[in-house]
Amino acid sequence: MTESKPYDDIPGTVVFDSDQAARGYHLNQFCISLRLQPNRDAFKADPETYIDQYPMSAEQREAALNQQWNRMLELGGNIYYTAKLAAYHGINFQELAGLMTGMGSTSYRKMMVDGGRSIDGNRYKSEWQDK
């Protein structure tokens, strides 16, 4: 469908390029709307009615309502947008990273304090095949 891209071989990474941006437009606009309190209140009162104002795909809608953080990125979401939905759920950036990496907050935080995720072994998808 789309041509291959030089960054397709970076593991565990979804580059938010123009194809992804086009795919994720309504999902992202939904997420960013939660920056404002009246919208958070409306979403809280009736999540399904609120989200249906944004004509996203059924997959995106399901991912958003079920807090599938990586899935949202794969479907065109961008982290700065999905982080607003996370914040609505009381999840900060570091906790969100704990969820997306599958490590959980405590071990993710420890990894960061210990210097972060090493670049070695994390440059190419081929390096992740054994994982």
Partner: peptide
């Protein structure tokens, strides 16, 4: 500086770079 906020590679730091 180096950082990745998203998906499974989040937390990447490359101090040498």
């Amino acid at each position: 500086m180096s950082h990745q906020l998203q998906h499974q590679r989040a937390g990447l730091i490359n101090s040498e770079w």
